[in-house]
Design a protein around this nucleic acid. Sequence first.
DNA 1: GTTTACCTTTACGTTAACGTCAACTTTATT
DNA 2: AATAAAGTTGACGTTAACGTAAAGGTAAAC
Lengths: 130, 130
Amino acid sequence: MEQKNKTYSISELAKEFDITTRAIRFYEDKGLLNPGRRGQTRIYAPADRTKLKLILRGKRLGLTLDESRDIIGMYNPGQSNEDQLQTLLAKIRERKSYLQQQLHDIEVMMLDLQESENRALEALEQLKTD
Amino acid sequence: MEQKNKTYSISELAKEFDITTRAIRFYEDKGLLNPGRRGQTRIYAPADRTKLKLILRGKRLGLTLDESRDIIGMYNPGQSNEDQLQTLLAKIRERKSYLQQQLHDIEVMMLDLQESENRALEALEQLKTD
DNA sequence: GTTTACCTTTACGTTAACGTCAACTTTATT
DNA sequence: AATAAAGTTGACGTTAACGTAAAGGTAAAC
């Protein structure tokens, strides 16, 4: 049986994701994480680990920590009134459209790189036919 | 007939791409652009404009200026020896694989956002059926 | 001929995202 | 009991990517 209430120490998470403990505490400072405590010591639940994953994914896509915190906050409509829900929807759709833009950028850059690779390969061929 | 040797002033480019002239000069400082000069004044050729586009595309994907400069430098195998070509090929492939990672990240984040949107829409429905 | 509109260089200021000590406590180990 | 291993909270340092002002040159328009 998989344990659902597993916990992690800060250095365990740091090792797993190849970041420093300093960075993890920094994310907490910025309001992205809220681990429990046993005395002074931070104790991370699976949910915290998931948030960390989201943060790092955000970083790979060039998001700032503020943006990642926003996105993490989009997960629970919770008890909001209509206005808040509409605002949330707007933010979600804006994000999605930006992702579409990034998708397009990646496609084009990928094609460019492929051409560059081909040119480099041709140049290599040229060297060998001398 | 389209003019091939059209030129642009710095403020024209700034306006077109919605950035500041300061930023454009900064990119030059960092070695990403090399515009011509008429006296003191910078004169940008279509090639410079293209490089600017590449820089901004890089930024949208979270690249640093150093990384974008590298990528721009990948366009011409030019006259290089085999070692240089192999190094170039390695860098190109590394970039491509990072783009694949980003592609995957985008797909997953897109799905997550879609779920969030659906939950928000459901929450809206709930409000209306009261 | 002087205002207006761009252009230039130089230089200090700012923000994000940590890195890097320092000084100290708690826990585990020998 | 003493040492080592991990944890904590400051607090100052660093880098990237510009922003922002200062001080001035040039050229067309009024």
